[in-house]
Every structure is written in structure tokens, then in C-alpha cells.
């Protein structure tokens, strides 16, 4: 990879907390690395683990899911159910060789602009240290076998 490589990170942010937290970070003019591509979702509980696998397959170097703190979920318990799913997803992917740190999770409330900026910085630096993702990645298909 050339020196110009920058980690590509897909962040699934819950509409009610983390996305608002990102907004606050922006409004407050906090600096954080521009490596995340944000996808707004209604709830962290709405994030199918399949999305994360697919993101890694299609070129993400890292994936972040961020939702409301436990007890703050707009749908009462979406994030708590998600917590179980993500524990399973992380265990499975790392079992078959995904580097620790490629998939990450956080709770960021609408009031935590600073935490959002910190999380993005930490995630970006972790993924940068890991280098470009190679595993689980779909290769471009050439014509000849």
C-alpha cells in the first residue's frame, strides 16, 4: 500500500444518541479524523450483524457501531439486545481471524460530543495501526480463471 493509505471506517450511529453526539461534536467544532463514513440507523438494535460482515467484505478497514447508553434507548431496550448480538459477532469474527479492533462498539449520548470525537480518534488510530484490512475482503474478479 502507498503512504497515502488512510483507514476507511464505516460507523453505524443510532439516530437518537450517537448521531446527535456526532452533531454536537460538529457544532462544537471539535476536531476528529475524517476517516469515518457515517450511516445513520434508527437504533443500534437495528444493526444486523450481517451489515458489519458485509462492510468488511466490501472494503471497510474497520467498523464501528454506536448507540445510546444502557437505559437511554429510545425504544427502551434495543441497545441491550444489540449488546448480546455484538458480543456474539465479535467473538465469531475474531475466532476466525479478524484482528481485534477492526470491529468496535461504543455508547455515545447526544450530550457527549467530546466522547464521540475521542471514540472516532481512538478507533481510527487502532485501525491505522492494524493497517489495511485484507481478511474477508472480496477480490475484484478477473476474466480468466
Amino acid at each position: 500500500m502507498s503512504e497515502a493509505w488512510e483507514p476507511k471506517i464505516v460507523a453505524f450511529l443510532c439516530h437518537w444518541c450517537s448521531y446527535a453526539g456526532a452533531d454536537l461534536a460538529g457544532i462544537s467544532r471539535m476536531q476528529y479524523p475524517p476517516n469515518v463514513r457515517v450511516i445513520r440507523v434508527p437504533c443500534s438494535g437495528a444493526v444486523n450483524p450481517f451489515y458489519l460482515i458485509k462492510a468488511l467484505q466490501r472494503g471497510a478497514d474497520g467498523v464501528l457501531v454506536s448507540g445510546c447508553h444502557p437505559g437511554d434507548c429510545h425504544y427502551l431496550a434495543g441497545n441491550l439486545v444489540a449488546r448480546r448480538k455484538f458480543a456474539m459477532l465479535k467473538a465469531l469474527l475474531e475466532h476466525v481471524g479478524l484482528e481485534e479492533g477492526r470491529v468496535q462498539f461504543s455508547w455515545v449520548s447526544a450530550a457527549e460530543g467530546q466522547k464521540f470525537a475521542d471514540v472516532i480518534r481512538e478507533v481510527t488510530e487502532t485501525v491505522r495501526a492494524l493497517g489495511p484490512a485484507g481478511r474477508f475482503r472480496k477480490a475484484r474478479r478477473a476474466l480468466c480463471r
Binding site: Q57, L89, L92, V96, F136, R137
Partner: peptide
């Protein structure tokens, strides 16, 4: 959702997702 070719990553996605559905 998942490609049906012999692409290795697609086959991985199938097996990983099936495993997760059986968590």
C-alpha cells in the same frame, strides 16, 4: 445479499452469517 459464485469471501459471508443466525 450474498453472491452465489465461487468467490471465497462470499462463501465466508454465508457461513459466518449462518453461524450468527444460529447463535
Amino acid at each position: 445479499w450474498v453472491g452465489s459464485s465461487d468467490d471465497l469471501s462470499d462463501t465466508m459471508v454465508f457461513h459466518l452469517t449462518r453461524t450468527l443466525h444460529l447463535a
